[in-house]
Write a protein that binds this DNA or RNA. Structure first.
Lengths: 154, 154
DNA sequence: CTTGAAAAGAACTGCCT
DNA sequence: AGGCAGTTCTTTTCAAG
């Protein structure tokens, strides 16, 4: 996808929507000094250009009973010639796996895993992750705190 | 936060909204066999209970010219001498840093960094990340592909 | 770009089963 | 708890400057 041409207003709108997509075009425009139709047209243009990929709700996993989040780094065993597709398919089939990243570096894959507690995580690790096809070394990082930032828009 | 009591309908609604929060209570209820008010009341209850933390738009960074995403694992060098708060404040001040995770394991922090390309990432790494207060070993994983899954809801 | 107004739809409220 | 009918509000769309 080629870089879309965005001006300051577009970037300001994106910053608002990434932080909180609750308010509509009217309220966002008011904050930026734009009229409601102008803001609405810009948002629609950003959606059509593919800059805005979708809208989702953020869920508090802790209130759902999943208090533990762990990032796993996985190095595939060099011995067996297991296809990446096999590994990815098996990894994404684990309910507790929220994200599967194919990465370049010390590891081949990074998995974001949620569990109810550390005991539950150990169960997932031993019975699900360690039995993935081709899995070699596994490194784990338990998430203590996580802060998200808006990120650069231009 | 205590685990909220959710039934199957609540979980189904959450699954829908996490995947796509475009449609309103009416459409979601139609898909689940619930009326618009019933679905709306459940969504509001989930928001008030804190299960739904917020709504955000997802942005396609590639179309904004940020084609490179890197996960950094950072081990602090002088523990105790540099406060974690100092590191976190400095890390979150870097525009290219999208996420700062305090983690337990081989590393102390995990950073999600976006850059225009690898040359741009090298600039961020050398001038911004390596100069963070207390930074020791740094490990990098360039993201090739990333697949998100809904995750377990119950 | 703006304002104004109309049409569409979503959100919200009572009342009833 | 869920559904129905109605009201209120925002969003969306269009017309015109």
């Amino acid at each position: 996808m080629a870089a879309a041409e965005l001006d300051d207003s577009d970037r300001a709108i994106l910053r608002e929507l990434v932080g909180d997509a609750t308010s509509g075009a009217g309220e966002i425009g008011r904050r930026l000094g734009l009229s409601q139709p102008a803001t609405w047209r810009r948002i629609r243009r950003l959606e059509e250009a593919g800059v805005i990929k979708g809208r989702r709700v953020e869920v508090d996993r802790a209130s759902l009973g999943f208090g533990v989040t762990v990032f796993l780094g996985i190095k595939l065993a060099t011995r067996g010639r297991v296809s990446l597709e096999d590994f990815e398919r098996a990894a994404t089939a684990i309910p507790e796996v929220q994200m599967v990243q194919h990465v370049l570096g010390l590891f081949d894959y990074r998995l974001r895993v949620v569990a109810r507690d550390l005991a539950d995580f150990e169960r997932v690790l031993r019975r699900r992750v360690m039995t993935l096809p081709g899995v070699g070394n596994v490194e784990a990082n338990v998430v203590l705190t996580e802060e998200r930032r808006p990120g650069p828009f231009g």
